[in-house]
Design a protein around this nucleic acid. Structure first.
Lengths: 147, 147
DNA sequence: TTACTTATTGAAATAAACTTGCAATTAAGT
DNA sequence: ACTTAATTGCAAGTTTATTTCAATAAGTAA
């Protein structure tokens, strides 16, 4: 799940951003560009610091919310009460998971997932529709193992 | 995954609570008792309100943290920046998942899970140890489906 | 380019979840 | 019952995220 989004990707994103009642602004472009360079989900605070004064933290929150609603960005939750955001890649449509070290918080992108039949089985059993899932793995990475 | 913890369960929990440098207090007993009656994970705020003044909200937070550290209670995250807590049942050792309606927030307890080989495969591939996972399903329940 | 319309931003205030410091309380051992 | 230290309550403080509103700037049309 190595990212490294191409320049072409960002142009596509700009195209999606453009629309009625919606403007391409410098903060939004900068946030998208930054997300395109990151390999793992990042927090709003991290984005704000990386952009060092380019825009207000409030604008980061607002932009991320917009980008999420447009399905350009996906929100992840690593269990520390802080939302993390990642650019949705065209290959996996944002559906992938992470392996997080409980000690040093290192993040590994995971492309494996369980068989989708499990999800449809659960959906059917309980009469739910449009069922998705959030799945993250937690463990201790090789560096943090007290050998 | 129907809960309904027996009186016997709570006695066991009391036994676990008792220990060196640790005291059985009224708030802790009341929180355990309340959790024993709930079928789904509940928030600290919910517990505090249900106990209506029996103890301070701060004590609820502190007790839950203690109970979690003692593996009597498990913390869940339903993606709304609010921790939810559930008594760990002796049958599943706290390992189970939930199906949450994105509209009305109804919660269904799920006892299905994917094959554990996926987890060990991922652990081995990335050199991680003690790998666990957090998995929650989200969808639209039958009542909320716009038919 | 210039003017116009309104989406967007910044700054401060607010909200919600959770934590910390400390004096008062209370559980549990002697 | 006495003593000691864990625990609680209250107030204050953090952190994350949202709201309000005047000022700014993006997109459009002249």
């Amino acid at each position: 799940m190595a990212h490294s989004h191409s320049q072409h990707d960002l142009i596509d994103l700009r195209a999606k951003l453009r629309g009625k009642d919606r403007r391409i602004t410098k903060p939004r472009e900068e946030i998208l560009e930054l997300l395109g360079k990151e390999d793992h989900p990042v927090t709003a605070k991290f984005i704000h610091e990386k952009l060092s004064g380019a825009c207000d933290l409030v604008t980061v929150y607002r932009s991320l919310k917009l980008l999420e609603s447009m399905s350009l960005v996906k929100r992840f939750n690593f269990g520390d009460n802080t939302a993390r955001f990642e650019l949705i890649s065209s290959t996996d449509h944002g559906h992938h998971h992470h392996l997080i070290c409980k000690v040093c918080r290192t993040v590994v992108e995971i492309d494996e997932c369980f068989d989708p039949s499990l999800e449809s089985k659960i959906a059917k059993k309980h009469g739910f529709q449009n069922v998705t899932h959030e799945l993250e793995f937690f463990g201790i990475c090789s560096s943090c193992q007290t050998t």
